[in-house]
Design a protein around this nucleic acid. Structure first.
Lengths: 221, 221
DNA sequence: GCGACTTTGTGCCTCCCTTCACAAAGTCGT
DNA sequence: ACGACTTTGTGAAGGGAGGCACAAAGTCGC
């Protein structure tokens, strides 16, 4: 196995998507005072199979000890390093509707090391208002936030109509990572990464499964 | 091609996950007055390739016309039927913290036909309070909600510590579909479907991509 | 009516992800 | 010091999803 830096570049996306789950499970173990953990136990805590866990970790390097397991602290910091969590990632939330306000008040971000440095809205009537102890600023503040505070991640919580425009402003200011809560597909240059979280999509998928199992039962009868 | 009912049972999960996106794009087209659409256009609106769109739709049946495209209204209702959206899906939100309150106030659910019929919390000090015009009820109301109002989907917006307990109560009351916003892996019986939405996981994945592209640039220099 | 044209539906191929199964490597008891 | 035991790391196999390319099927102009 080569160095972690070289290995990291080959981590498959599917594995990357599971790393945060491992990190969370490890953090819980560390808080409980556990020093060492087997792939079997850790996998159970993250909701995956042990074979998958071991293969995922093998992409980062060999940090386990055969016959024993993984050192909780060590593995947690290796995963954090692989995810790039050693540096901080300033976040701005765009759109101060219901969802935006909730996200602004949400503690989960800070707990995982993401610092919300600004709340933005394009509506002048909202700009200047205070949300969760933080003033709402205009979209025109973006370039300065990127330049002077290293803003790296934009969270879009606007209505669907305004999402593309908000995204364009973020990208133009130099933001390369976008988390999109609006129900639209955003168009961005290749170097920008967008992830979409859509609540109604999730509910519709649940509806499909609920519907199907009802149909299955009817057929089985 | 057999009947839609038979075909539906074989729809791969990956395709199901994209159906809501197609439905959204079709709804937008219908609102704009478009009567017919090609796979190429619809795919662009949903952010996928046209070949993929056609293959996904072929799992539902043949609703297109060669040389012409798809009838917008017809296809939308076929997809809605496949997803089980012809019936309504009463939803309850559990956990009235920041996130729960935001979800309660969120308009998106109703727009897509999901009716929030109850807000729940296990904390007696919050029960009775009014959130978004709806009273907060105790967890003990669950069995009645399932029995008398057909509650089918539970949304968990509790802190991580309380999520499993909330989930157990939902399942015990007869809820078979759960949308989990808490950062924990829930254990449920096989017949229950859980989908997890974790904001910090999404941010961590974005951090990885931002980090990697920074590394790539450094190496290329 | 007929031929040129457009667009769907699908067989095939490839690639990636997941699972299986086991050798390698380390620990622990004696 | 050595052998039994535990657990990792990984090669190989299996399965599924996405992309390609084309035949099938329909429309439209003449």
């Amino acid at each position: 196995m080569s160095t972690a830096a070289a290995a990291r570049r080959g981590v498959p996306d599917a594995a990357v998507a599971r790393l945060p789950g491992y990190l969370r499970a490890l953090t819980a173990l560390a808080a409980a005072g556990t020093a060492s953990v087997s792939s079997e136990e850790l996998a159970a805590g993250a909701g995956v199979s042990s074979a998958m866990l071991r293969k995922d970790l093998s992409h980062l390097g060999s940090y386990g000890v055969r016959g024993v397991g993984y050192d909780v602290e060590r593995l947690a910091s290796e995963i954090a390093a692989a995810l790039g969590l050693t540096q901080d990632w300033p976040v701005a939330i765009v759109g101060m509707g219901n969802l935006g306000r909730a996200l602004a008040a949400y503690r989960g971000f800070a707990e995982r090391g993401f610092r919300v440095i600004a709340l933005l809205d394009h509506d002048e009537r909202i700009v200047g208002e205070e949300v969760a102890g933080c003033p709402v600023r205009p979209m025109s503040a973006l370039p300065e936030l990127v330049r002077e505070q290293g803003l790296a991640i934009g969270v879009i919580a606007t209505p669907p109509e305004g999402a593309q425009a908000a995204c364009d402003l973020l990208v133009e200011a130099g933001v390369r990572s976008v988390l999109n809560f609006a129900s639209v597909v955003l168009t961005v240059p290749d170097e920008v990464t967008v992830r979409r979280v859509d609540l109604s999509t999730e509910l519709q998928i649940l509806a499909f499964h609920g519907h199907r199992s009802a149909v299955d039962e009817a057929l089985a009868r």
